[in-house]
Simulated scan of single mutants.
Amino acid sequence: MDGGVMAVFAVTTGKGPNWEHSKGIREQAGWDEHAAFADGLVDRGVVLIGGPIGGRNQDDVALLAVRCADEAELRAVFAADPWAASGVLRIKEVRSWTLWLDGRQAR
């Protein structure tokens, strides 16, 4: 990130073709590498909040609030995720998100 104006996006990730359905999220191949990558995105201020999401679709993995200059940069950043590279995880949806409310700092 170059320090310019950053947008926020809601990113939904989904199970990729190499997701092992018989295993839990932390049992997937390359979990430690993926977790280290994700922690690095938090440290760099790219991922604001995120984690596994429940819901109607069994394919959903996580919902993230992500700060990047644009969607192209976001996709380039996430392409370096070891899980994306190995087909365990994929980006399902990217939507722009204007954050008006954030109670995390007030507490």
Score class of each variant (00 low, 15 high):
71 E>G: 07
10 A>P: 07
34 H>A: 04
12 T>V: 00
62 A>D: 08
61 V>W: 02
68 C>M: 01
79 A>F: 00
102 D>N: 14
59 D>M: 09
84 A>R: 12
32 D>V: 03
84 A>V: 14
81 D>K: 04
40 G>P: 05
23 K>Y: 04
49 I>L: 07
18 N>A: 13
16 G>W: 02
41 L>H: 09
13 T>Q: 06
104 R>A: 15
85 A>W: 00
21 H>A: 15
90 R>D: 13
33 E>L: 05
10 A>S: 11
4 G>K: 10
31 W>Q: 02
49 I>P: 07
47 V>Q: 08
84 A>Q: 14
76 A>I: 03
78 F>D: 10
100 W>A: 14
38 A>I: 13
78 F>H: 11
23 K>Q: 10
88 V>H: 09
30 G>V: 01
91 I>S: 13
34 H>P: 07
65 A>M: 07
96 S>C: 04
91 I>N: 12
59 D>I: 03
102 D>W: 03
106 A>S: 13
102 D>M: 05
83 W>R: 07
94 V>E: 06
97 W>T: 11
1 M>W: 03
37 F>Q: 05
107 R>F: 02
96 S>P: 12
19 W>S: 12
28 Q>T: 12
98 T>G: 12
94 V>I: 10
21 H>S: 15
50 G>V: 01
98 T>Q: 11
50 G>A: 05
